[in-house]
Design a protein around this nucleic acid. Structure first.
Length: 473
RNA sequence: GCUCCCUUCGUCUAGAGGCCCAGGACAUAGCCCUCUCAAGGCUGUAACACGGGUUCGAAUCCCGUAGGGAGCGCCA
């Protein structure tokens, strides 16, 4: 039972709690995916919470982008923005009243105290500590102010943050879902701010409190939070709230070993989407990045959830490898249904192409396409002017001879399909196999490789096949 | 500086003392199939960061070293 709402949870929940300060990064997308899969696998709820307590850095356009990216990936949340269930609101900026109650509770216990130190004072103190070779921790200036002193300063309107009084000499232990037993000493943790001077809740506080309030029981999050976990456990303990089980997953690194960022090329979901990557490809790749599975096929989200195993989450940071993403992209593209393929390639197609031809064209070139831009060349070849031959192509065509092409062109003029055209050329020349097909392919497409010819010819403009063959007759 | 996390083929990883002169997937090389490319089939190349222990036996346990990462914020 949750004390905030007095409500019981039949099911557990996982959550993804992004902060709308930028675009959805691949690393965060993976975190979202893993939490989603963990929930789906256990028939639990997947909660989406927007952590926008920092008004100066949070922007609504980023929230819009975040929701859009998550939708695109197919990670539908069971509770969150647009899906209220009584435990919300799911924007932290709208939860101030809930936080206020808890601040009072902690103040009553003496678990927190107002801190009047200014940002510059703290900066100076940190600097001095570092210079002296010590850990930069809050020096405790305001920790033991008398009650009178606090009243006086507060009364005088002096701005104050609220700090959590970290108990001395305590071991904080928990079992990480990924890393196993963890043990920290409270003496290594300085008193930290849980409420900013402007009254807003700080991350450690709102994040931990909301997990409890929203019935979150398992959290997979970035490894950068591992050493922050003791702080959150302390808060939850002081409030008598249950802590979720945390699992800390590694960061995603670029090929050079540095944390993945824009300078490695694309790092945000938006960029991959705009380059034409399929969501199934991104999701399947992410599923295997820092997670191992015996499932080697391109899987749908539910199948991925069934195959997801938190036991097989890796501890070491994983390198992003676009070549591997490409493999999944090929799988995803190759299994696209004809209409879906047409929609995906639509921006590359010539204007005014009838839907039937467009669909047939896309189906024909799909095996040779990884990203939409790869279709461009085939659009030009099929719908553009007859390709000019040079080099190997010109040689092969000359070798095949004019009789070869005269027969082929006649078959084309009679309305023959590719099989008929090839048969006519074979009959006229006695050629077969590569000897037969290579000259035809060059004459028709200008290239020595490409999609199967038969379906390609079916979408060529009327008469075009004959014209291209007759050039060499 | 202090605390914490991490280190197996190019990449993602399996591996929780003998089943491992380390297995799989993808990538890569060769062959087969094939009108080319792709797909598919077969075969191959390729890794336990380093150094000490413990043990009959260590990729697995312990201790160091090196390298990488994170945290120590009125950012999340």
């Amino acid at each position: 039972m949750d004390r905030t709402t007095g409500r019981t949870f039949a099911r557990g929940a996982t959550r993804f709690a992004p902060s709308p300060t930028g675009e959805l990064h691949l690393g965060n997308a993976r975190t979202a995916l893993f939490n989603f899969l963990l929930a789906r696998r256990g028939a639990e709820r997947f909660v989406l919470r927007i952590e926008d307590t920092d008004a100066s850095r949070s922007r609504s356009e980023h929230t819009v982008g975040l929701l859009h990216d998550l939708h695109w990936l197919g990670l539908q949340w069971d509770a969150g923005p647009g899906r209220e269930d009584g435990l919300g609101p799911y924007y932290q900026s709208q939860r101030a009243a809930l936080y206020a109650q808890r601040f009072v509770e902690l103040e009553r216990q003496g678990a927190v105290y107002p801190c009047f130190c200014s940002a510059v004072e703290l900066e100076v103190a940190r600097h001095a500590q570092r210079a002296a070779g010590r850990a930069p921790r809050y020096p405790g200036t305001c920790r033991d102010l008398s009650a009178d002193e606090r009243r006086r300063r507060l009364g005088a309107g002096q701005p104050a943050t609220l700090r959590f009084r970290v108990p001395a000499g305590q071991h904080i232990e928990f079992t990480d879902l990924v890393h196993g037993a963890q043990r920290f000493l409270s003496d290594d943790i300085g008193d930290f701010v849980i409420r900013r001077a402007d009254g807003s809740a700080a991350f450690f506080f709102s994040n931990a409190l909301d997990d409890a309030a929203m019935g979150v029981t398992q959290v997979l999050r970035g490894e950068d939070h591992l050493t922050n976990t003791p702080r959150q456990l302390l808060i939850l303990e002081a409030l008598g709230l249950p802590a979720p089980r945390y699992g800390h997953i590694s960061l995603i690194l670029g090929p050079d070993g540095a944390p993945l960022s824009k300078r490695h090329g694309a790092a945000s979901v938006r960029e991959f989407r705009e380059r034409g990557y399929r969501p199934e490809a991104v999701v399947n790749y992410l599923f295997r990045l820092g997670h191992s599975s015996s499932a080697h096929d391109l899987l749908g989200l539910q199948a991925l959830a069934d195959a997801f195993d938190p036991q097989h989450l890796g501890r070491a940071p994983a390198h992003f490898d676009e070549q591997q993403l490409t493999v999944w992209q090929k799988h995803a593209v190759h299994r696209l249904a004809p209409e879906a393929a047409r929609d995906w390639l639509a921006p590359q197609l010539p204007n005014g192409l009838d839907p039937h031809t467009a669909t047939a064209f896309c189906a024909a070139v799909l095996p040779n396409v990884v990203l939409p831009e790869d279709a461009r060349a085939w659009v030009d070849i099929v719908f553009g002017p007859a390709p000019v031959l040079a080099g190997e192509g010109a040689d092969l065509v000359r070798e095949a001879g004019s009789e070869f092409f005269a027969a082929a062109a006649r078959a084309a003029a009679d309305g023959g399909d590719f099989a008929v055209i090839a048969a006519a050329a074979r009959l006229a020349s006695g050629r077969k196999g590569a000897q037969l097909f290579r000259p035809l392919r060059f004459a028709l497409t200008g290239l020595g490789h490409g999609p199967e010819l038969a379906p390609l010819l079916r979408v060529m403009p009327p008469g075009e096949t004959e014209r291209r063959l007759a050039r060499f007759a």
